[in-house]
Design a protein around this nucleic acid. Structure first.
Lengths: 153, 153
DNA sequence: ACAATAGTGTTATAGTATAACATTGCAGTT
DNA sequence: AACTGCAATGTTATACTATAACACTATTGT
């Protein structure tokens, strides 16, 4: 949990540096994501918030806080799963241009990998040749993790 | 429209070869997808069905027919968009191992590209090294098409 | 103290998806 | 033809995902 605390500190510093306030709800929701270590939905976050902080939070607020945290590059939204997950690069300095998410379809454990910039340029080129432009450099791969795979059948 | 008719014929043959019945609803919904040339949601399909065939179809049926068409490899579901699109490889014989979908976030025009098998194996290996197994070889890229891009701002 | 703005809450509603059960219709048998 | 079994479809209800519109509160700068 100290690691989570450290992350929150980093997040607070980053937000202050950007001149945006990181309020109590934002910190709390961010903490839940840090401690969960899995992708969770907005409604799961709202439930967990009430359990942990003995206070209800409307899902609208959860969605809004998630938008905020995404803008601050602290959180990602997985579009294939409709769930949120903490960015795994918060504590490293350099900007990551593109991420590949390996998402377990059973337990929603997620591994975030960085895309090698050569491969990324190659892909962008291929997309351009097909008459499109890449809008968000986020790649989600529907996977199964080893432990869930071992349990199957 | 003749191209669509030809596709329906192929689909009917394929289903018969598998010993599964392709009913009127299935043919009709498949035809709508063929003619739309874009990704469409289950509810849009239900609406379009009523317009085209002067008969309502419940969305449950749409979802079930889409499942059926996916099993027959005639249709793909785009998880990032919650929409369906006809498979672009129906009329070619060979199985396509993996597809990359370029999806316009504005108009939902979609381009389906085949993934080069060398790249695919490379990716699978990388995923395995990360402790996951690829579950569905379908890659969705959030893009914008040139004509929508031209319209922006 | 005041205005301006950002954050949060409330209520309502739209959109996505499936469970549970009922009914229909067709295929193969007797 | 009547019977049986199974797949397809319909009905109803419900859960989950997401946002619009508007009200209220808190903080900041003047």
């Amino acid at each position: 949990m100290n690691a989570a605390k450290a992350m929150v500190d980093i997040a607070e510093k980053e937000c202050k540096a950007h001149g945006v306030p990181i309020t109590e709800k934002r910190v709390n929701l961010f903490s839940i994501l840090l401690q969960t270590q899995k992708a969770v939905s907005a409604y799961e976050l709202a439930d967990e918030y009430e359990r942990m902080f003995h206070e209800p939070v409307p899902v609208v607020t959860v969605y809004r806080v998630m938008e905020f945290l995404q803008r601050e590059h602290l959180v990602h939204k997985l579009e294939t799963a409709n769930k949120f997950i903490v960015c795994s690069h918060i504590d490293c300095k350099k900007k990551h241009s593109a991420s590949q998410f390996l998402i377990c379809r059973e337990c929603f454990t997620v591994k975030e990998l960085s895309v090698n910039s050569g491969k990324y340029e190659e892909l962008k080129l291929m997309i351009q040749q097909a008459g499109f432009l890449l809008d968000s450099p986020q790649f989600e791969l529907n996977c199964i993790c080893q432990s869930c795979h071992a349990k199957e059948d």
